[in-house]
Structures are given as C-alpha cells and as structure tokens.
Design a protein around this nucleic acid. Sequence first.
DNA 1: GATGAATGAGTGTTCATTCAT
DNA 2: TATGAATGAACACTCATTCAT
Lengths: 200, 200, 200, 200
Amino acid sequence: MNKTKEEILDAALNLFSQKGFSTVSIRDICSVVNIKESTVYYHFQNKEAILNEILKQFENHSESLIAKMSSAFPALMSDPQAIEKLLPKIMNEYIDGYLTDPFCNKVIRILSIDQLNNPKVHQMYSFWLFEKPLEIQQFVFSIFNNAGIISCDDPAFAAEKFYSPFFFCLSRYLISGELTQEKIGIFKKSIFRHIEEHLR
Amino acid sequence: MNKTKEEILDAALNLFSQKGFSTVSIRDICSVVNIKESTVYYHFQNKEAILNEILKQFENHSESLIAKMSSAFPALMSDPQAIEKLLPKIMNEYIDGYLTDPFCNKVIRILSIDQLNNPKVHQMYSFWLFEKPLEIQQFVFSIFNNAGIISCDDPAFAAEKFYSPFFFCLSRYLISGELTQEKIGIFKKSIFRHIEEHLR
Amino acid sequence: MNKTKEEILDAALNLFSQKGFSTVSIRDICSVVNIKESTVYYHFQNKEAILNEILKQFENHSESLIAKMSSAFPALMSDPQAIEKLLPKIMNEYIDGYLTDPFCNKVIRILSIDQLNNPKVHQMYSFWLFEKPLEIQQFVFSIFNNAGIISCDDPAFAAEKFYSPFFFCLSRYLISGELTQEKIGIFKKSIFRHIEEHLR
Amino acid sequence: MNKTKEEILDAALNLFSQKGFSTVSIRDICSVVNIKESTVYYHFQNKEAILNEILKQFENHSESLIAKMSSAFPALMSDPQAIEKLLPKIMNEYIDGYLTDPFCNKVIRILSIDQLNNPKVHQMYSFWLFEKPLEIQQFVFSIFNNAGIISCDDPAFAAEKFYSPFFFCLSRYLISGELTQEKIGIFKKSIFRHIEEHLR
DNA sequence: GATGAATGAGTGTTCATTCAT
DNA sequence: TATGAATGAACACTCATTCAT
C-alpha cells in the first residue's frame, strides 16, 4: 500500500481510538500526517471510507487470529489433558495478539466508542466483543464436557461466567484511559488469577 | 426548577445517551423541546453546563441510593444470616433503581460513551462503574469473612469476581443498543443465576 | 419580510439571472449583501431554498398577472370589436409587467439558464414560456373565431404563429445579454409590428 | 487526431450539452472516457480548451454547411421559380445537417446554456442563432423581391417573421429536454406548415 | 423568560490543475 | 502517452455562542 495512505490510516486509527470517529476531523488527521486535506480525498472516497478500511483490516486480523487459535482444537479433542499446557499459550496469544495488540486494542476502543452512532460499528462491537468470544468458549466447554474433563450442563452459561472477568478487565484496564505497560501487567495478573480460580 | 429548563435537561439526557455529547447539537435539543436555540442560553451557560447538571443529578441520585442500600448493613453485621433474605432485595433495588432506572441508565450510557473525550466524565465513569461498586462489594465480603459466613482471603478479588458478570451483562444487555423490557428480563435472569452460582 | 432576507433574495435574483444557479456561490451573495455566510442559513435552509422562494414569488406574480389580464376576456366576448382598443393595452401589460419587468425578466433568465440542471426549473420553463402563453393565445383565437371576427381553423397553430415572434424577440432582445432601455425599445417596436402584420 | 483526444471531446460534448460547461467536471469526463484526470491535461491545456476545440469544430461545420447551401443561390438568381423545388431541399439540409445533427444540436445547446457565463459563447450564440440565419434569409428575400417573385419592402422584417417559428420550434422541440425522434418529427411537421403558410 | 438576528470558526468535500515519473 | 500523487482554493453547510430586544 501507498506510504501516505498508510500514514493516513495510522493517524486516523490513533485519533479515532482516542476521541471517536465523529469528533476527529479530516484536518486533525492531516495535521498529524502533514498533508493537505484534499490529499486525503485522493486516497479515500470520504471520511467513512477511512474507518471502513480500518474495520476491514481488523476483521481480517481477527479472523486469522481465530483460525490460528482454532488450529489447537483438534489436538485438544484427541487429548483433552493437553488443556493445562495449551491454555496459557492460547490465552497469551489472545491477549498479546489481540486485546493488547496496538492495532487491535485501538480498533476495539473505536468499536466501543462509536457503537451508538454507527450501525456497522455496533454490529461489529456486538460480534467481536460478545458473540464471537462467547461462541468459541461455549464450544470449548462443550468439548471438555463431552470428554468428561469437566461437567457443565450449560456451556453457554459457563462461557458467560468465564468471559465476564475478561470483559470486565478489558474494559477497566485495556480500554478505559491510555494503554500502558503497567495496565497490561495488572490486566494479565488479574485475568490469569480468574482463569485459575475458574479451573479449580 | 423551571419547566423549560427541565425539558431541556430531559431532551439532552435522551439525546446525549443515544448519540453522545459531542454528536448532539443545541439545535437537536431545541427541536425536541420546541424552543429557539438562544433560549437554551438563558437557562444554561453553555452546552457543557447541561451535561454537568445531568451529571450532578446523577451523582446525587447515586449517593442517596448507596446511602439507602447501606442502611441495611448494620442489620447484616449483627445477623449475617439475614443475607439470604436481604440480598435479593438489595439486588433488585440496585437493578431497578439504578441500572435499569430510565434516568440512571441513560446517564450510565453517557458515561460510557463520552469517557474518552471528557476527563470529568472519565473520572465519573471509573468511579461509578468500577471503583464504587467494587469498594462496596469488597466491604460486604470483608464483613462476611469476619463473621465467618464465608471465607475469602482476598475480598478485593472476590468483589471483582462477583461484579464481573454484572458489568458484562450491564454492557451487553442494558447499554448496548436500545433498552427494552425484554432485555431487562434477560439481564435479570442471567444476573441472578450468576449470583446463585457464586453463593454456592 | 425581514430586511436581510429580502436583500439576500434580491442579490440572489441578480446573480442567479446573470450566471446561473450553480455558478453563484453563497459567498457571492454574501459579498453583495455584506453579511456572513452563516447568516444566510439563518434565513434559508439551504441554497436551493433561496431559488425556490424566488420561483414561488415568480409563480405568484405570474398567476396574478394572468388573472388581471384575463379579467378583460368577458368584455371581449360580448363585444369582440373591442379587441383593437384592448389589444395594445393587454400587450403593454404583458410586456411591461412581465417580460421586461425587472423581477420577472430576471426569473425568466434563470428559467432559461437552469432548465437543464434542475427538473423543477425545467418544468416551470416549459410551462411559463411555452405552454401557458400558447394556451391563452389559443383560447383568445378560439373566441374570435367563434365570434366570426377572424376565421382560423386551427387556433393552436394560430397561437404558435402569433407567439413565435414574441418568443424570438424575447430571446434575442430581452434575455440574451444585459437588459437595456434601448433593447426594450427595439423589442417593443419589433413586436408591435409583428402584431399589426398578424392582424391584417 | 488521437483516439483518446477524440473520446475526451466526444464525452465533453455530451456532458456539456446536458449540464452546461461549468457544471461538468474533468472527473465527469474522465469517468466516461475511463482515463485519469491528469491525462486530460496531456491533450488539452485546460478545461476551457476542450470547449474551445468543440466550438472551433462547430464553426467549421457551420461554415461549410452555409457554403454548401449557398451554392444553390446563383441558380436561384437566374431562375427564381426554382424556389419551390429547391426550398424543401435546402430546409431539409438545414434541419438534418444542422439543427438535429447530433453534433450541431449538442453544440447549439451548449451555446444556449452557457451564453451568459462565457462571452465567447455569447458571441457565437448571437451570431449563429440570430445574426447569420437572419442575414441569409434577408439576403434571399431581397433576391426574390428584386426578381419580382415576392414583394417585400422590408426584407429584414420578412426574415425575422420567417425565422421566428424556426427559432421557437428549435427552442421548444430541439433544445429543451432530450432530443428524440418523436420531437424531431413534431418539429419538422410544425416548421413545414409555418413555411407553407408563409409562402402563401 | 424567550427570541430574532447575526457571526466566527470549523466540517466534509470537490475541483482544476501541476508535476515528476 | 498516461498516470500517481499532491495541492490551493473554493464550496455548501453546521455549530456553539452572543446580544439587543
């Protein structure tokens, strides 16, 4: 991709994730990238198109991450005991490659800020922060249940229970305010404690 | 308070909670209240002052609710077994008089939408959605621990664990999208199941 | 009506009739009226609304002129010989109060300039420059024919024949280029000669 | 001429004649021709130059048509009775090769749309729609008068009278709105009736 | 209490044009 | 021949705010 176009996307990502789509002006973006406003319109049809490109990249990123994480499932199904070794690995991948990944973290912020103004964003927010994670976890709990490792009669509820601290800590430490290494540390410590507690 | 002023506040509350502070214009408010824009400036110094008044009312409401709910604590301390009878009552008060209360619910939406643009809102968001609820619950868990009803070596973590499903369901059912009776029903059912599970 | 609003309408009328609607900017209008651009939007919803107001005034003006001119018809029907006295009067009313009337002349220019870009303008152009004048003249020729004053088997064609020099001279002397007293003089001389010739 | 250049001219002709010069953007032209905007500037110095080239072609076309039509005059002067045979031929040539000719018709539209914004266009409009046709017809009427075929003491006025229905029908049927075969039919029928009527 | 009128600053966007490649 | 990239100037329009009445 073109260098300027990338810079625009990068600046937009940062600004949108800090102040929300509608509060950021094309001028704001341009003064970061150091180009003229009309230049933006050479690279993008309009302001919305910048957001859409960001969202598309996020969707690609998310989907490939899920694909990658899902590749561990077959192994799990044949040897469910592997969970104790695999789980931390998967969790770290999820946290480092998604929740705290600079790009994804910013998009997640955008999703949570702009969900109310933009139907498309709202749908993505619901999907990537509620539906998809719950679906995956519910699926995993079903497997474990079938394998006799755990007994849970309602995988959907189990998933909700398991995911709740995730969502809470995500909101509290990774989205609210600036993202610092310190906050990431607190987040990880807290989350892994919740996971341990849950597995007991 | 003056009738027009109240109508402005009411319209602003609705609009802010639907689209966020910066996306709502004075025009928008006026076309709901059916007054001219200049009239707003008779009642409020500026747009921000409208928001501030709403936030102040919310803070008053929240504090008096906490005071009310806290009044049950002394009784609990002398007879901790009363918890089983009191808990549902307190929870319903919290849900009906706060999370799903038309006024509070809207303000909570405002807090979550505008936390990133407005430092004051950010501080209130942190306080009322994270710090305060956790503080109270931590306090309650300490009492129970001291009373020997439950044994929890880390009340802070226990509070986080207890509050997480609350926050999750709040975000999922009470804030995202429009608030319907159906969603409130799902929220309550889900929350009470989490509470039960937790108490076991 | 408000003074500023009238000034805006007046400036817009002049500019639109000189350069066409889309070529005139709000800035152009403002620099004539000596107001800021935002002021225009206090008085009009948008640029198009200015044009629409002008067109509405024109339509009112045209309709009342027709009503006035038509009031002579009953007299004509009872005494068709009166035509020789009435005709010049009617014609002068039509020319002075319509074709060369400063307001109407400018609007007619607008109609002829912008007919291609604006469907509403196109429809008004067709109506006021083709359909309506022909309809009226056709009606008059019918009356005279029935009264035996003239014999014309096809009033529609007679009207077209009678109106053609009107339209030609209108286009040549009253619309093309600036409207001067000299041109009005040439127009009138030419038109009255055509009328005489026609009546013979 | 270069193929791309011709395509640009062709697209510009169509668009200018539909919406007027200033309303058509280089982008509009390019999206028809399927080239980039910068390419236009390889073939033309600027937007105006495209129009000028079109106008030059029109002028060449018009002049050669006149030359062709004028070649019949000497024959007419020696045998004025030939008029009855020649006239329809000349008229058809004028209508088919000029007024309804796809290229000329479009340019005539451009002339009538843009006469008010562009002095050069205004001059051409006056010349080709008023002065030249009247000059030619006046010349013809003089010949006939001198030859005793008709007696007209004012050939200029006769020309105006003869040309008026032409101009009217041209404006009404050939310029206003889209040009269809049906409209051409109505135009021809109407015009030939006017000519007949005139010759009687 | 309320409003009519005005405005300065800003917003997203379009356009003709340039120029190096 | 053609284009990718950029730009300055302009455009219609919005907004929070002011102030005299």
